[in-house]
C-alpha cells in the first residue's frame, strides 16, 4: 500500500530529526532561534516532499533542505548568526589535516578561540564546515552544494588552512 504524504513526512522526521537539530545548532546561538529554524526546515521538507523522486539519498536531500533553508534563514539576519561548535567537540578533529595527536588536543582545548574564528566565516563557509562537522564525505558535500568533488575539496582545504593560520597567529 502506498505511503501517504503525512506518513512519509513523519518517517523522515523520525529518522533525520537529529541531523536537522544539529544543523540548526550550528547556525543559531539560542534555543528559540534553533526551534524557529527547525520548524522552517520541516515546513520546507513538507513543501518539497512531492518533488522528491529518490534520485539522491534521503539523507543528502535532507541536508540540502537544511543547508538551503539555513542560507535563506541566515539571509534574513545572517550578521547575527553564529556557528555553534560546542556540542561537537569530538568532530573538531575533522577541521585539522595534520596527524599530530598532541597538536590536535592542544587545538581542541582552544575551543573558544576556534569558535570565534568559525563565527567570522562567511555563511557559505559555515555551511561547508557544518557538513564537515557532520562527518560527510567530500562526494556527499559536493552533491548537497552542487559543486564538483575536487572543487569542494579545494574550498574546504582553503577554509581549514585559513582557520589553522588564524589560530596559530592568535597563539
Amino acid at each position: 500500500m502506498k505511503e501517504s504524504k503525512e506518513e512519509k513526512f513523519k518517517k523522515i522526521i523520525a529518522e533525520n530529526g537529529d541531523k536537522i537539530t544539529r544543523i540548526c545548532r550550528y547556525y543559531n546561538p539560542n534555543t528559540e532561534d534553533q526551534k524557529d529554524m527547525y520548524q522552517e526546515i520541516l515546513v520546507n521538507i513538507w513543501n518539497s516532499l512531492d518533488r522528491f523522486r529518490g534520485e539522491s539519498a534521503i539523507s543528502t536531500w535532507i541536508y540540502r533542505i537544511a543547508v538551503n533553508t539555513s542560507l535563506s534563514f541566515t539571509g534574513k539576519a545572517f550578521r547575527f548568526m553564529k556557528l555553534q561548535v560546542s556540542t561537537d567537540q569530538q568532530n573538531l578533529n575533522m577541521l585539522f589535516d595534520d596527524n599530530d595527536l598532541e597538536d590536535k588536543l592542544r587545538k581542541e582545548a582552544n575551543l573558544e578561540q576556534l569558535q570565534n574564528q568559525l563565527n567570522l566565516l562567511s555563511v557559505i563557509d559555515k555551511a561547508l564546515i557544518s557538513l564537515v562537522l557532520e562527518g560527510l564525505t567530500m562526494r556527499e558535500i559536493a552533491d548537497i552544494i552542487g559543486l564538483t568533488e575536487p572543487n569542494v575539496k579545494v574550498k574546504i582545504h582553503r577554509i581549514k588552512e585559513e582557520l589553522a593560520r588564524k589560530l596559530l597567529n592568535n597563539q
Binding site: N47, S48, F52, R64, I65, N68, L71, D143, G146
Partner: peptide
Amino acid sequence: KSVDYGLPTTQML
C-alpha cells in the same frame, strides 16, 4: 510559491 529546497544549493540559487 513552489520553491524546491531539495535541489543542490547552486541550482536553488
